[in-house]
Design a protein around this nucleic acid. Sequence first.
DNA 1: ACAATAGTCCATCAATCAAGTAGACTTAAT
DNA 2: ATTAAGTCTACTTGATTGATGGACTATTGT
Lengths: 142, 142
Amino acid sequence: MLSKKTQYALKALGYLAGKYGEGPVLISDISKKKKIPIKFLETILLELKQAGVLESKKGKGGGYYLLESPKKTTLAQAIRLVGGPIAMLPCVSINFYEKCKDCDETTCGLNKAMKITRDATLKILEKKTLVELIDRPDGIEL
Amino acid sequence: MLSKKTQYALKALGYLAGKYGEGPVLISDISKKKKIPIKFLETILLELKQAGVLESKKGKGGGYYLLESPKKTTLAQAIRLVGGPIAMLPCVSINFYEKCKDCDETTCGLNKAMKITRDATLKILEKKTLVELIDRPDGIEL
DNA sequence: ACAATAGTCCATCAATCAAGTAGACTTAAT
DNA sequence: ATTAAGTCTACTTGATTGATGGACTATTGT
């Protein structure tokens, strides 16, 4: 299960994707529409800015906006940006790898099973982009 | 990422699967071989017993053992037993479902993407069983 | 019966995560 | 210049997770 932080980040990015090209969006706007605690959201957006995905504008008329077209960012990238590993175990994670204390990866069955699972997941998340997070009326596909 | 508890549970189950039919296995044995904090392991095994997967025997010659052949339990079942949801979001979880506050599932892009991911994951985890968690020398497949 | 062994139960502690609070700092409009 | 709008920073609280210590109970062998 993704952490709340990661879930909020994805929702916020999806919302910003829908407003791409329309200028800065208020934190309070995102917070209301996506029901995300505003102060928590602030820290998440700040982190996404420091990661280079978002830009912000201060003062009146300010807010956050996507730096690049939502097509450019995959869901896999988005999840990893806010520190969410995609794999189910540290020892099969690509970006947050940690060696197991007890297991030899060449013989560990759990490792093998989870690698297969990870690959199946990545195959999907690396294909989908922020564009697919934009809410759209029922029946309309991409 | 799976919780430590779930990771430990899977490792312990894999170890017990390898000893299936050999009688009770000591907690301390599992703890040593799989490098799991013994006290934490105790509570996990107890939970697995209450879930009906393991049985225990007290006193000398006691320990834990699998109640059924390791073939009978899938990895998906094992993960859920110790309270670990498999889906990445509550709103796409089958066994731990929770409705989103903000989103209409018929139009939410995130929901759609994560459902597809969940299905791909489940397809794998519902096919594999505890048998595949047994450590085996390199090169030997099932 | 008794001692040794091994699982069970209860209580506590530390670390991390989620969320809320207060206020300082920046920018833009008037 | 002043003020309102908005981001940025630091600190506090509560809940959950991970880990530990010790007392208690059941079983076996002598």
